[in-house]
Every structure is written in structure tokens, then in C-alpha cells.
């Protein structure tokens, strides 16, 4: 039924769809790409290559729009970003090239990539379910690398009416974790906010607001490295990416204001529900494409 839609309906649907994702993203603390890629792959008729290319641009544009203000407020840290991105950028490029290579070399490659994406999303769901976000981790002693790099800072917390100071630690565990998530993010074109936040918060001890904000800065710096590959290979299609970028930018501006009032627990459950549906749908779509199960099941 949807295949019979006029061509101009798809950009309008994409605009409305990304606007809604933009509303949700700032409330959930994950970048737009992690929601955009699976849902678009599942419900839109585009090749997974174009979806991943648009996903990277969605993640980049929302991160570029928000990062400057987050740095000014003290929530996004350039000091944390520098050592972690230096490593994850290399793995992100490798991941982007691997994603395109798979679909280019193997006729059924895009179905395997779709299935893998579904499995990754269910893994993210489990991580989110198990993560206990710590608002203000108590880092008593910094590790030698974190202390040497001065991984600390402060921001004004309106709910407390004062400046809050923080320290980060365990850089030796944080950097390899960022390397792994950089590869996955580049391969699936979905940003890495879903993994950045738990790494920064649970491993490195950054307060949750610092973790979500610094994650946006990491996405802003890291994403172009993978996106060039998609641009050069023609995987960024204006008919998809223009409404997607405009929609996410408009939605994220309003979503950032809504985030101040929304209950984080409710939003978290909402995102987990989306991840569950998207993960299952992608696996079903991939298996259908391979003929393992009937198509359109």
C-alpha cells in the first residue's frame, strides 16, 4: 500500500518522522541516529546504504546544533572529548568502510547488515535496561591518566542553585570502549550516543548530565570521519537527507525544552520500547530478505 504513495509524500513523511525523533532525542540522552536508522530501515523503502548515510547526517546536524551551548554551560567537556575521539575516530572510519564494503561485495550483504543492526539494537536495549544512571558519581581518586589530563570541570546546576564540580577517572577502560563503539557507530551510521553515555557515566564517572552533553560533542567531532565515505560513494541522497536534517533540527530544538519537564524514567522506557520494536523488525526484515522466513512476515 505504502509503495503506491506519490513521490512527494515520502519527504513529507520523513520530515514529520524525524521531527518526532528530534523531540524524543534530547529527552532520552541518545543521538537521533540510533532511532532514525532502525526505524527508517524497517518502515521506509530506501536501501540500507542511503539510510545509514542519512543517519550519519541526522546525528551530525543535531550534535552540531547543540554542542556549542553545551560547551558554554560547562556540561560538554572538550578535555574528555579529545583523548577519546582521537581513538574512536579511527575505528569509526573503519566501521563506515566495512558497512559499505559488505553491501558492495555480497549480493545479500544488506540483509546481513540489517540483521546485525537488529541484534545490536537488542544489545543496546539490554545495556539500557541494566544501566543504573548515576546523577553524581562520587570519584574520590582519579586514575593517573585522567589526573594527568585534568579531566574535571564544573557547571551551574539549576536544581541545586550552585556550581557542581566533577572529576572523571578510568581512562584506560574508557578509551578501548570508545574504540569499539566507534566501529559499530560507523558501520551502522547511527551515531554512538547510546554507548557514549554509559561509558562516560558508568565507567569514567562523569555525572549523567555531563555524560549526555559530552556524548553530543563526541558525536559532533566523530561523525564526519565516517560520513565522508558515504558522501564520496553517493550514499547521501538529498530526497531523503534534506527533510531528515531539517526535521531533526526543528524537533531537537523543541525537544530540548520539553526535556526540562519530562520524567526521565518515562522517556527511558519509551526509548527502550522503540529499540525493542526496531530490533525485532530489522531482524525479521533481514531474515525475510534472505528467504529464511517468508518476506513481509
Amino acid at each position: 500500500m505504502l509503495e503506491s504513495l506519490a513521490w512527494w509524500a515520502w519527504p513529507l513523511i520523513m520530515l514529520a518522522f524525524t521531527f518526532l525523533i528530534g523531540l524524543i532525542s534530547p529527552m532520552s540522552g541518545v543521538g537521533g541516529g540510533v532511532l532514525f536508522v532502525p526505524l527508517t530501515t524497517a518502515f521506509f523503502p530506501f536501501s540500507v546504504d542511503f539510510v545509514r548515510g542519512a543517519g550519519l547526517m541526522v546525528a551530525l546536524s543535531s550534535a552540531l546544533a547543540s554542542s556549542p551551548q553545551l560547551i558554554r554551560s560547562g556540561l560538554a567537556s572538550l578535555k574528555i572529548t579529545a583523548p577519546t575521539v582521537t581513538v574512536s575516530m579511527v575505528t569509526s572510519v573503519l566501521g563506515g568502510a566495512a558497512g559499505l564494503w559488505i553491501t558492495k561485495q555480497f549480493a545479500d550483504g544488506q540483509y546481513y547488515v540489517t540483521i546485525a543492526l537488529g541484534v545490536i539494537l537488542l544489545f543496546v536495549l539490554v545495556v539500557m535496561a541494566l544501566s543504573k544512571r548515576v546523577e553524581y558519581p562520587d570519584v574520590q581518586v582519579q586514575g593517573p591518566f585522567a589526573a594527568g589530563l585534568g579531566l574535571e570541570g564544573c557547571w551551574y546546576e539549576p536544581t541545586q542553585g550552585k556550581l557542581v564540580h566533577y572529576k572523571c577517572t578510568h581512562l584506560r577502560w574508557g578509551v578501548p570502549a570508545f574504540a569499539l563503539t566507534g566501529f559499530i557507530a560507523g558501520m551502522f551510521g547511527m551515531g554512538s550516543g547510546w554507548a557514549n553515555v554509559p561509558i562516560l557515566n558508568l565507567i569514567m564517572g562523569a555525572p549523567i548530565k555531563v555524560a549526555t552533553s559530552t556524548s553530543m560533542l563526541i558525536i559532533a567531532v566523530n561523525t564526519p570521519a565516517a560520513a565522508w565515505v558515504y558522501l564520496a560513494n553517493g550514499a547521501i541522497l538529498p530526497m531523503i537527507v534534506v527533510p531528515a536534517v531539517v526535521g531533526i533540527s526543528l524537533g531537537a530544538r523543541i525537544g530540548a525544552k520539553l526535556a526540562l519537564r519530562a520524567k526521565p524514567k518515562m522517556v527511558r522506557h519509551m526509548v527502550m520500547g522503540i529499540l525493542l520494536v526496531s530490533g525485532v523488525l530489522n531482524i525479521v526484515k533481514g531474515l525475510g530478505g534472505l528467504g529464511v522466513i517468508p518476506k513481509g512476515l
Partner: peptide, 29 residues
Amino acid sequence: AGLAYFAGWGQCTPFETVVANWHLPVAEY
């Protein structure tokens, strides 16, 4: 440029052609 594109100005590939092929892997497209 996006507004110009959707208005049909400076169009190099017809919209119908894009829509008919956007399900293909990027190289085939």
C-alpha cells in the same frame, strides 16, 4: 539548495527515477 531541489529547479535526475531506484544498494542505484 534543498528548497530549490524540491521545487524542481536545477533538477538533473527526475524524482520518479530516484524513487524507482532508491531501494537498490548505492552502487547499483
